[in-house]
């Protein structure tokens, strides 16, 4: 569904992404993990059109969108959340979702009902009339997720959705992600909560120094010595530069 092919990005001399390949399939939650500064957010920005790659291609459902802007990609069914929150702070929680729904053509009561449904899905229906600015971080992330879902994306990219959530909330989020995949969505998850990643993802890509160092099922990735080295350091191989 989403395919990233040989994408490279450098910021003045520093290679942030080096020939990265990723496939995100419909009906699955795909994980993207890696230590801090590995290039995950940069990759998100390349996929969603905020960052132009120096090389490589981004394909959504087989269509090359490498040179399309974020808006066009959104219309092709690409949704995302942000690591640094991008909620509409001066609107209410419900209005945040309504902006997206109304942009998709829903009006009036239909939009409101759909909005409440979405909020219920992420567990925010009781805060519908709260101003979004005062939400704690965790709930604000869920709001971003609900808002992204309002656009009925075919591929959704989540940048650390669980940070700020407690154990039960994050378990609920995990179930929601699996459900979304089950409904035919392709989910790409960047996450630091390894329990969550290992539980919900069918495939995991590990990024280190802008390169994919490991791909596979959770169990394979977890025992991969290269991954251990990337995360824990030490004398083992890691990425050669």
């Amino acid at each position: 569904m989403l395919r990233v092919d040989e994408v490279s990005v450098s910021f003045g001399g520093l290679k942030a992404l080096d020939a990265v390949d990723i496939d995100v399939d419909t009906g699955q939650v795909t994980g993207l993990i890696g230590p801090n500064g590995a290039g995950k957010t940069t990759l998100f920005n390349v996929i969603t059109g905020f960052q132009r790659p120096d090389n490589g291609e981004v394909l959504v459902d087989g269509r090359d969108v490498t040179h399309a802007g974020p808006k066009k990609r959104a219309r092709l069914g690409l949704g995302r959340t942000f690591q640094r929150l991008e909620i509409f702070g001066s609107l209410t929680v419900l209005d945040n979702v309504l902006v997206a729904l109304e942009n998709g053509g829903l009006r009036g009561r239909h939009a409101r009902e759909a909005g409440i449904d979405l909020l219920r899905r992420v567990g925010l229906e009781r805060s519908a009339l709260t101003q979004a600015d005062v939400l704690p971080t965790g709930m604000a992330r869920l709001l971003e997720l609900a808002r992204a879902l309002a656009c009925r994306p075919r591929v959704i990219l989540l940048d650390e959705p669980s940070s700020g959530l407690d154990g039960t909330e994050s378990a609920q989020l995990g179930r929601l992600l699996v459900d979304l995949a089950g409904e035919g969505m392709a989910v790409l998850l960047v996450e630091h909560d390894m329990d969550l990643v290992m539980r919900v993802c069918t495939r995991i890509h590990v990024l280190d120094f802008g390169r994919i160092i490991s791909v596979g099922a959770p169990a394979e990735v977890r025992t991969d010595p290269a991954v251990q080295a990337a995360y824990l350091g030490g004398a083992s191989t890691g990425a050669e530069r």
Partner: peptide, 17 residues
């Protein structure tokens, strides 16, 4: 103890790894 903390435990899922 550190490895588990970082890469998560999949024991909860009853995995055999």
């Amino acid at each position: 103890a550190v490895g588990d903390l970082y890469l998560g435990s999949i024991r909860a899922e009853g995995s055999t790894t």
